[in-house]
């Protein structure tokens, strides 16, 4: 067992091209899904928080429960939809990176929406009187509040990225784990483990952890730097 650890660290150290390719594809897919999710989620979270309408609390509950959406279920549903004889078959999405981005976006949106709604809620309470007094419209409230809570949003987004990067159930179904095309870090770990190739599986696992760590460090550096001389939020 000690040998496996040693060999996998060695594999990382040499950064073989297979490893780099898989890491690159993982980042591409998860970051794409993250960016799309942010663009969709932040307006939804703002509407849920700032506007008042009937059904608001039920929609919030739905988003909250979707946070624990099982990835495999999303994978199967998406597979049926984008199968070549399925309703979205003509888009030819099955077994492409786009399908994987699609799946991860569905999984990440509820996380960012729910967490961000909470962040916006707390900030909104703090500024409510002021915003009422200047009679601001929705868009300007949204802009002001989102900017105020930007560091909290960063953490929410990070939680979303964590979900996307670590997810395997959905993307292995819609991506098919095809070599050089849809094989990412998590799906390779599954494959290499089943091949009994523990060195490679562990090497990939360790690099996945390192990447998560690096992203966290970068973001907390940004946050700390910006927070200097900044009070409440």
């Amino acid at each position: 067992m000690n040998n496996i650890f040693y060999d996998s660290i060695n594999l990382l150290y040499t950064l073989d091209s297979y490893l780099l390719e898989v890491i690159g594809l993982s980042l591409y897919i998860s970051l794409s899904a993250l960016i799309i999710s942010i663009l969709i989620s932040l307006p939804i979270a703002s509407i849920l928080s700032i506007k008042n309408f009937t059904g608001k609390s039920s929609i919030t509950i739905i988003f909250n429960s979707l946070m624990s959406l099982p990835p495999v279920a999303v994978g199967v549903i998406l597979y049926i939809l984008i199968s070549y004889n399925g309703p979205l078959g003509h888009l030819e999405l099955l077994y492409t990176p786009s399908a994987m981005i699609f799946a991860q976006t569905i999984l990440v949106i509820p996380i960012i929406v729910s967490l961000s709604k909470d962040s916006i809620d707390s900030c909104l309470n703090y500024y409510r009187d002021y915003l009422l007094s200047i009679n601001a419209n929705f868009l300007s409230i949204m802009k002001t509040i989102l900017w105020e809570v930007r560091y909290k949003l960063l953490i929410n987004i990070l939680a979303g990225l964590g979900r996307a990067l670590s997810e395997v159930g959905a993307i292995i179904i819609v991506g098919g784990n095809i070599d050089h095309l849809t094989r990412v870090m998590t799906t390779s770990i599954v494959l290499e483990t089943s091949r009994g190739n523990l060195t490679k599986a562990l090497g990939l696992g360790i690099s996945l952890i390192i990447i998560a760590l690096l992203i966290n460090i970068i973001l907390s550096l940004i946050k700390n730097r910006e927070l200097e001389g900044n009070g409440e939020y």
Partner: peptide, 27 residues
């Protein structure tokens, strides 16, 4: 000063991302 740094970081991350997306666009 601080804000400029954030923008720079975002710009660099964005460029990196664009770079990878070009490399992995669907066939």
């Amino acid at each position: 000063m601080n804000r400029i740094n954030t923008k720079k970081i975002i710009l660099i991350l964005g460029l990196l991302f664009l770079n990878t997306s070009l490399a992995y666009s669907d066939e």
